[in-house]
Design a binder for these strands. Structure first.
Length: 264
DNA sequence: ATCCAGGAATTTT
DNA sequence: AAAATTCATGGA
C-alpha cells in the first residue's frame, strides 16, 4: 500500500519519544503496536507500508490532522520557529491506548532507550508471537520485573488488574480533563504520565506533559532560567498555546533533545 | 565509579 | 501545603 502524505516526517515522528516498539529495517522501519507488526518507509511525499491498513496507518501517524492549520497557528509564536522549521513534519501520534498506558508507566525516571527495552521484553515475555499482552495478561509480578521494570513493576501489575477493554472504551469517550482524572486513578500515573497518555493516544492536544527536558527549556526560554513549578509551567503553556499546547511541547521536547545548545 | 533518565508515592518539615 | 526522600536499573 502506498499513499500520499504531505507535511509528514516519519523519521521525526518516530524519533520523538512517543512510540517505542520500532527499529530500522532496510530503508524503512519495522513497527509493532498491540497485536500488529508492520513495516513502513517514506520517500518524499509517499508513505509505503505493509502489514496494516491505510485507516490504521493514518490514525497512528496522525495523518488525518489539519497539519497546515496547526503549524500556521503555532508559527504565530516566534519562539517556536527554530523547532518547527527544523522538524517540519513531526506529528503527534494517536497510539493504542493500552500499550501507551504501559509505555509511560515504564517512563517514570527512565529514558527512551530503556522504555524500548522494557516494552519489547514485556511483549516477548507475555505476548504471543510478539503481540503486546492484552489487559489481564500480565499477571505475574516477578515476570514483569524480569523486564528491568524495577519499582515500576507493581504499577504495571495494578494497571493490568484495573483496566479492561470496557474501561479503555469509556476513557476514549471522555474529554481531556475527565480522561486525565480517570487515568490518575491507576497507581503509577500522576499528572505527567496522564498527560502523555492524553496527548499520544487520546488526541487531546491541550495536554502538556512536563518532564525534565521541558522543564529545562521552558525555564530557560520563558522564565529567565529560574526554577519554576511544573504546574506553573503547564499553566503558562496552556495560556500561551491553548488547545495546541501539546503540539508545542512535542516540538520543544524534540528540539531540546537533538540540539547541542539546549543540552544540560 | 558516579551520574542521569519523558516521576510517583511516601514521609518529613 | 510544601519540601525532602525513596524507589531500581541500563547506559554513558
Amino acid at each position: 500500500m502506498r499513499i500520499t502524505v504531505p507535511n509528514f516526517s516519519l523519521k521525526h515522528t518516530l524519533d520523538s519519544g512517543q512510540f517505542f516498539r520500532y527499529r530500522p529495517k532496510g530503508d524503512g522501519y519495522e513497527c509493532r503496536e498491540r497485536d500488529l507488526a508492520f513495516t513502513v518507509r517514506q520517500k518524499g511525499d509517499y508513505l509505503a507500508f505493509s502489514g496494516t491498513s491505510e485507516e490504521h496507518a493514518r490514525q497512528l501517524f496522525g495523518l488525518n490532522q489539519d497539519y497546515e492549520k496547526i503549524i500556521a497557528d503555532l508559527k504565530k509564536d516566534k519562539t517556536l520557529l527554530p523547532a518547527i522549521n527544523k522538524y517540519h513534519g513531526l506529528r503527534i501520534m494517536q497510539r493504542d491506548l493500552w500499550e501507551t498506558i504501559i509505555s509511560f508507566q515504564c517512563s517514570i525516571m527512565s529514558n527512551v532507550k530503556k522504555i524500548r527495552l522494557n516494552m519489547n521484553c514485556l511483549a516477548t515475555e507475555f505476548g504471543k508471537n510478539n503481540a503486546f499482552p492484552a489487559p489481564g495478561q500480565m499477571n505475574d509480578l516477578e515476570r514483569i520485573k524480569k523486564c528491568a521494570t524495577g519499582f515500576r513493576a507493581k504499577y504495571i501489575l495494578a494497571a493490568n488488574e484495573l483496566v479492561d477493554e470496557k474501561w479503555l472504551l469509556r476513557l476514549q469517550k471522555m474529554n481531556y480533563e475527565h480522561a486525565r482524572e480517570k487515568l490518575m486513578e491507576i497507581p503509577g500515573i500522576a499528572e505527567k504520565v496522564a498527560d502523555c497518555i492524553c496527548l499520544f493516544s487520546l488526541g487531546h492536544f491541550a495536554a502538556f506533559p512536563v518532564d525534565v527536558w521541558i522543564e529545562r527549556i521552558m525555564e530557560k526560554t520563558y522564565f529567565d532560567s529560574k526554577k519554576t513549578k511544573h504546574n506553573d509551567l503547564r499553566a503558562f503553556a496552556q495560556e500561551r498555546w491553548g488547545e495546541l499546547a501539546g503540539y508545542a511541547q512535542q516540538f520543544l521536547y524534540h528540539h531540546a533533545r537533538h540540539n547541542e545548545s539546549t543540552q544540560p
